[in-house]
Design a protein around this nucleic acid. Structure first.
Lengths: 222, 222
DNA sequence: GTAAAAAGTAACCAGATAGTGCATTAGCGA
DNA sequence: TCGCTAATGCACTATCTGGTTACTTTTTAC
């Protein structure tokens, strides 16, 4: 390339991408790109070079900010858990009637999984690795405790009001609420083949949500 | 016998008696080793060299019999589905009272997942890959149809006998029965952290099974 | 017995992959 | 304006990985 051309090209590149240094923005772009890549391919299948490219960052930056591929994964996983717990807290179910609160929770869980499919895949990947990354996180435990007690409160209120039967374990209920949505969505590909229907069709999704609400309400009904 | 000892013993046996050629046995050893390796590390994380070593076979044999790593995975996945469907058919639920048949099915599903944890991991891995391998299998569809109709029959008998309410979709019921066991077990590692209890303790497993049977019976109760 | 087919082996390869050493530069405080 | 620090970029590598080539050994068919 001739000198004049090169200068022109450089100017064009600079104009198109006048990259100013911004650690926070770079970190954020890396986290976002990595979340997608890890969700799509799992921890083992994700490629660091791909993450760097998608983040429009140099690979060196990933190691600069996150130490290693696993360090990056751990950060993303922790963020994912904190995000869903914060969203759950924001629901503010305490002022609702118990039945309505529970229905709202089932609906929220379902919608959250639908809108944040990477959450499911990240959790799957973490369980393949026997939760070695999540084990190190204290903040996740704190948030989880709050969540369980939220459901316990709804149950208690329902029992007092005579609309729920007593003796339902809030942890088992939590697991069940998550399970009936999570399983359907994480196994949507094999499920669509096995059951020979498109599990992700609009009608199918609505039907499943109705079924799930029904399942949970019958489970706790007095 | 410990795994390491077993390998050592097998090696000694092989040295003492130069292995006779046996295509079927070699294939079987490869399939067994691959099932474990794929289940442990997923399709992407599994290593062909490790499979060959565990199978005490030459890596070339894998390509000889199964074309490629993905070909091997596909065979194993198909086998896994056929195995569970055959086991389900063997339950012979038709002569049982509807309620008991349903309880038996929930119990069977739970026990099967517990005894064959690799089934869950294989399905997870396949869904990460959008079921591209299962799509190619016709035999799985045939077996699945039989399974769905088995559950439908139980439901119909229950409705006729007046013990189940009408209108329950057998596919949704199937999915739910699988979900409440599958989710608990596949997410046992993160779950044990989030809920701060050992989900795999003997008591915990028994409690979960009871809870699941209860959930399903309440769901279909007249 | 023998030749062809099948089973098995070892060494190798090209491309990919996580991770690094080192130079460069922007931005900030003084 | 200067100099320091943190942000960025480039080029490189040691190792791994799926897959293959070329070969030997055993079994089978006749």
């Amino acid at each position: 390339m001739e000198s004049a051309e090169k200068v022109a090209a450089d100017k064009a590149a600079a104009a198109a991408k006048p990259r100013t240094r911004d650690a926070e923005a770079t970190k954020a772009r890396i986290l976002d790109a990595a979340k997608r890549e890890f969700a799509k391919n799992g921890l083992g299948g994700a490629r660091v070079d791909v993450i760097a490219e998608k983040a429009r960052a140099n690979k060196r930056m990933i190691y600069h900010y996150f130490e290693s591929k696993e360090g990056l994964f751990q950060t993303i996983l922790e963020n994912a858990y904190v995000d869903i717990r914060i969203a759950e807290q924001k629901m503010n179910l305490d002022h609702l009637a118990p039945k309505e609160a529970l229905e709202r929770l089932v609906r929220f869980t379902w919608d959250y999984y639908l809108k944040n499919p990477e959450f499911i895949t990240l959790v799957n990947s973490e369980n393949l690795h026997r939760a070695k990354h999540l084990k190190k996180s204290e903040v996740v435990k704190v948030y989880s405790r709050k969540f369980v007690s939220m459901v316990a409160t709804i149950l208690d209120r329902g029992v007092s009001a005579g609309v729920f039967r007593p003796g339902v374990d809030p942890v088992q209920l939590n697991i069940t609420i998550a399970a009936i949505g999570y399983y359907y969505l994480t196994n949507r590909f094999t499920g669509s083949i096995v059951f020979e229907r498109d599990l992700m069709a609009k009608d199918a999704l609505e039907e499943r949500l109705r079924f799930n609400i029904d399942t949970i309400l019958r489970l706790v009904a007095a």
